[in-house]
Each structure stands twice: as C-alpha cells, then as structure tokens.
Computed example of a mutant assay.
Amino acid sequence: MSVQIGNIDLGEFPLLLAPMEDVSDPPFRYVCKQNGADMMYTEFISSEGLIRDAAKSRKKLDIFDYERPIGIQIFGSDINSMREATEISTQAGPDLMDINYGCPVKNVACRGAGASLLQDIDKMVAMTKAVVEATHLPVTVKTRLGWDDNTKNVYEVAERLQDVGIKALTIHGRTRAQMYKGVADWSLIRDIKKNPRIKIPIFGNGDIDSPEKAANWRLEYGVDGMMIGRAAIGYPWIFREVKHFFETGTHLEGPTITERVDVCKTHLQKSVEWKGPKTGVFEMRRHYSNYFKGLENFKEFRTRLVSTENIDELFEILEQITDRYTHELA
C-alpha cells in the first residue's frame, strides 16, 4: 500500500532525506534525489528571518522541479510569525510545509523554538493549528521523543497534532537532552504507530546508517517510512543501497572511485551554480572527506581540495583522485 501525505503518493516505503542545517541545500538534495531519496526537505528556515526578508532565509526557499516532492521546513517561537512565514513559504511553491519541533541546538531550542516546544505542548498545538490554517498545502511535523528522559511526551504530541490537521509525523528517537549522543530508541515510535487513534503516516529517524539496520528496523518498528540524515552526508548512495536490500536481501556494490568522483563533481558544479564561485567552493569543503572516506593516504588530496579556490584546479584534483585510486584498487 502506498504512503500518502495529502495528495502526494510516496510509494510503498519511502526514504526521506532529513532537513540538515548547512547540509540539505539544493546541490546536496540533487545528488540525493539522483540516488533514490523519495522525499526531501529544505534546511530549516527561521520564521523571523523570512518575515524580516533576511537574504539567507529567503535563499533557502529556492526549490527546483527535479526535487519534487519537496517540503519547506520552518521553525520559530512566535505563533503569528510562524503563520506569516507559512504564507511566505507557500508562495515558493513547495509540495508541503513542515514544522521543526526537533532541533536541539541552543540558539534554536533556547529561544523557544525547535525542540523547546516539547516543554509546552499547548503552545505547540496552537502553533501547528495556525500553520495548518495558513496554507492549502499538507503540513507535516518533525519532532523528538520529548525534552528529556522524564518527559517523553511524544505519544500525546502525536494525537494532538493529528487532531489539528497534520498529515504525517517524523520522530527522531532521541530526547532533546540527548542531542545526537547515545543510541536512538525507536520503541516509542512503534507504540505511536500501533496507537489505533493514529491514522497519519509515522516516519522513524535516527541512526539509520546501513541497509541491514533499515531492513531490521522496518520489520521491528513497523513505521511507514524512514528519514535518513547524517548517513547521507557524502554518501547519497545510502538510499539506493537500502532500497536494493529491501528488494533483494543482498548488498548493492558500493560506489566505485569513478562514481564517487563523478557525484562529488556534480555536487561541486551545482554548488557553484547556486551559490556563486566563492561561496560554492568554500561550502563544498565540508563534504570532501565524506565522499572519499576510507581511502588510504587521502590526506594530501584532502589538503589540496580544501585549500584551492580555483574551480578548474578542483576538477583537476578530482580527476587525479580517479586516476590514482582506480590504478591502486585495480
């Protein structure tokens, strides 16, 4: 049976790309889409930034037709600002709106946004209702298990947010207090999925980093789909590998050196096109180590990649990586 969010058909068991600050931009989303991500989200966008017309926030509204279906994710602590930001985001033409009630970082959570709303469910419900009423698009939510171990209240959150009209819920299996440490616990996610009152799709998030784990947790926790975040950074092939394992029970060969280089080049090219040469080159630097993880004696290449500003030279270095490692691994 297909998973539906509003009128969006996501297929039988969708794999979603998590919204990640400074990572999930259009160039990164492009390579993930090419490798099997079924639905993606923008980086989270500050509602206050959108209302004030801040250039950085507005830039994050850029979406492209090849990315669909795509959601714009917003966060904020003021209900009116969130309503207004929803109206602005809707005009950018996404397929859905998503609210971030999960971000644990201080400058978000300590300003009353993101995961801090888990401490005030009434306000969270009122904010969600305002967003739902401000757009014709389906609204989804991403959140965590609770603020800390003593307040794991996501079961109540799921029911109440469904009641005010959200169309899907993604739950990260950690509390805000855990940040990204420890192990994600999906047992509460399973409980919510089994709750007879819950009719909307429930997606699990947290620690999906291999095809086996995805397949095991799909069976064990009974979720409708999975959201993958950190495991996709520098490794967009995770989506196709998980899908292949679901279908065949066997492992897809990992990407060849040529493939790694080609996808890295595409990512760099898109980055330069979207952000301009200077920023495009600079912001790509955080990805190189991940694209070439596990290659022996890579340090010299990495140093050159992160210190070069010339685009042609970067492509040349990437060619040299192909030559050297194809030869070494042959």
Results as ranks from 00 to 15, higher is better:
Glu296Gly: 08
Met226Gly: 00
Thr250Arg: 12
Glu220Cys: 08
Tyr221Ala: 12
Ala177Glu: 12
Arg302Trp: 08
Ala330Asn: 14
Ser89Met: 07
Ala184Asn: 09
Thr258Ala: 11
Gly49Ser: 09
Tyr41Cys: 13
Arg285Thr: 05
Lys123Trp: 04
Lys60Phe: 12
Asp38Val: 04
Phe282Val: 01
Arg83Thr: 14
Gly229Ser: 03
Arg304Phe: 04
Lys270Gly: 02
Ser116Tyr: 12
Arg52Ile: 06
Ala134Met: 00
Tyr101Ile: 07
His327Met: 15
Gln34Ser: 10
Ile70His: 10
Thr175Gly: 01
Val157Ser: 03
Ser77Pro: 02
Ser271Thr: 04
Glu259Pro: 03
Asn153Lys: 05
Arg68Leu: 04
Lys193Val: 15
Leu252Glu: 02
Lys293Thr: 06
Phe44Tyr: 07
Ala184Met: 13
Met40Gln: 15
Val157Leu: 09
Pro201Ile: 13
Val306Cys: 02
Ile202Val: 14
Pro255Leu: 13
Pro69Phe: 03
Ala168Thr: 06
Asn290Leu: 12
Ala55Pro: 07
Arg29Asp: 08
Ser307Met: 11
Thr256Arg: 11
Asn310Gly: 08
Phe246Ile: 10
Lys123Pro: 01
Val272Tyr: 01
Pro26Ser: 13
Asn290Val: 03
Pro211Asn: 00
Arg285Val: 05
Phe245Glu: 04
Ala37Lys: 01
Ile238Cys: 00
Pro201Cys: 11
Pro211Ala: 08
Leu50Trp: 08
Glu328Asn: 12
Asn195Asp: 15
Asp120Leu: 13
Gly225Tyr: 09
Lys123Leu: 14
Thr308Arg: 00
Asp122Gln: 04
Glu159Thr: 13
Gly182Phe: 08
Ala184Ser: 15
Arg218Lys: 15
Leu188Trp: 00
Glu300Tyr: 05
Arg160Val: 14
Trp217Phe: 10
Leu305Gln: 03
Gln178Gly: 10
Arg83Tyr: 08
Leu252Tyr: 00
